[in-house]
Amino acid sequence: MNTNLPIVVNGSLLIAEPFLGDSNFERSVVLVCEHNQAGTFGLVLNQLTDVNVSDVIEDMHADLPLYVGGPVQQNTLHFIHRRPDLLDESIQILDGLYWSGNFDQVKQAVNLGTLTERDIRFFIGYSGWGEGQLANELEQKAWIVSQTDADFLFSTPANAFWRGVLKRMGGEYKAIAHYPVDPRLN
Rank of each mutant, 00 (worst) to 15 (best):
D85F: 13
F79Q: 05
Y67I: 01
N75T: 05
Q74E: 13
Q73V: 11
R83F: 04
Y67M: 08
L94Q: 13
E89H: 14
L94A: 13
L86D: 02
L87C: 06
L66H: 10
I80E: 01
L94S: 12
Q92V: 13
I80Y: 00
L86S: 04
N75I: 00
Y67C: 03
N75E: 13
H81I: 07
D88A: 15
Q74D: 10
R82F: 01
D88V: 10
V72P: 01
L86V: 10
I93W: 06
Q74S: 11
T76L: 12
E89P: 02
D85L: 14
H81M: 02
D88G: 14
L94V: 09
G69V: 04
S90G: 11
P84A: 09
Q73M: 04
Q92F: 01
G69M: 01
D85P: 12
D85I: 11
L86Q: 07
Q92E: 15
S90F: 07
L66A: 07
R82G: 08
L66V: 11
I93F: 05
F79M: 12
P84K: 08
P84D: 03
D88C: 10
F79D: 01
L94H: 07
V68R: 12
P84F: 03
H78P: 02
L94M: 15
Q92L: 12
Q73P: 00
L87K: 05
S90L: 12
Q92T: 15
P84V: 08
T76R: 07
L94T: 14
V68H: 08
S90I: 09
S90H: 08
H81W: 02
V68F: 08
V72K: 07
D95W: 03
G70E: 04
D88L: 12
D88E: 15
S90N: 11
S90P: 12
V72D: 02
Q73R: 13
V68K: 08
E89C: 11
